[in-house]
Design a binder for these strands. Sequence first.
DNA 1: TCCTTTTTGTTAGTATACTAACATTATAAA
DNA 2: TTTATAATGTTAGTATACTAACAAAAAGGA
Lengths: 144, 144
Amino acid sequence: MTSVPLGKQLKSVSNLFSRRIHQIPLYHEGENLTPMQRMIIVMIHERSQTQDVFQRDLEKSFSIRRSTVTGVLQLMEKRGLLVREPSAQDGRLKRLRLTETSNALFAIIQKNLQETEAVLCQGLTQQELLFFSDILAKMEQNLR
Amino acid sequence: MTSVPLGKQLKSVSNLFSRRIHQIPLYHEGENLTPMQRMIIVMIHERSQTQDVFQRDLEKSFSIRRSTVTGVLQLMEKRGLLVREPSAQDGRLKRLRLTETSNALFAIIQKNLQETEAVLCQGLTQQELLFFSDILAKMEQNLR
DNA sequence: TCCTTTTTGTTAGTATACTAACATTATAAA
DNA sequence: TTTATAATGTTAGTATACTAACAAAAAGGA
C-alpha cells in the first residue's frame, strides 16, 4: 500500500488538464468550446469513420453516466455542434452525427488537444508513457 | 508522441474513482458525504496537526480554483462539517477547523478512502505505483 | 506618506458530474 | 402470447468545476 494518495493526485492532474484545454480559445457562436465538447467531437469524428455512434458509446468511452451524456449532448445539439437521430433499427438508440460546423472544426480541435497532450507529456519518454497508460488501463478495470 | 489519449484516460479513471468513493455510504444529517467533502476532511485533519490550514491551501492541494474552494466550503460549513474563522494576523485569510462531528468521522472516512485506493491499485506492485506517482507528479508540474 | 500591485476570498453564471426515479423499446422467459 | 427483465435515454435535483468581475487586506515602491 502506497502512502501516496493516488486518487487525489489523479483528480488534480485531470483538473489541470481540462483547464489547460479550455484556455486554448476555440470559439463557435461566441462560445468557447468546452473540453468535453472538444473531446466528444474528436471521438465521434474518428469512430464514425467505421461505425455508427450512439449515445451509449459515450458512457463507456468517457466513463460518465447516461444522464451526463444526455445533458452534454442536448447542449451541443442546441449549439449546432451535432445532431441526434433515432435509430430505425432500434428505437432505444440515438445516433450521433457531427454537423458541417463541427466537422469543419475537427482538425483545429484535434491539433489543440494534441498540443495539450504534448504539454502533459513533456520530459517523459515514450516508454514511460506506454507504461503509464498500461497502469491507467488496469486501474480503469479495477474500478469498473 | 503517444497515440493514446492520456488526458481522456486520466479523466475516465478520475471519474470512476470519485464514483466509487461516493458509493461507500457515509451519512451525516441524512446526506451521504461527497468524495470532495471526504478528501477535504482528511486533508484538514492531517495538515492541522502541524500548522494552520487556510482556504488557499486547498487550491494547491486539490488543484482547484478559489471560487470552487469557496463553494465547497460554504456547503460544508452549512452542514456543520467545518468552521471558517478569519485570521487575526492576516485579514485576508480564513482558517479552517473541523467540527466535533467531522473529527469524529475522520477515522471512518480515512478507512473508506484507503479501501477505494486499494481497489484502484489492485494487482499493481509497490514499485509500479511509485513509478506511476512520479509520472503523475511530473505531469502536474508540466500543466502548472 | 501615497500609489500600485499582489494575495485572498466572494459572487454570478454556466458546464459537467452524480443519484434516483421514470418512460420506452427490445429481449428473454413463461 | 404474455409477462418479466434488460438496455437506452430523459428528467429533477444537487455537487463540483470553470471564468470573469469584484472587494478587501497586505506588501512594495515612489
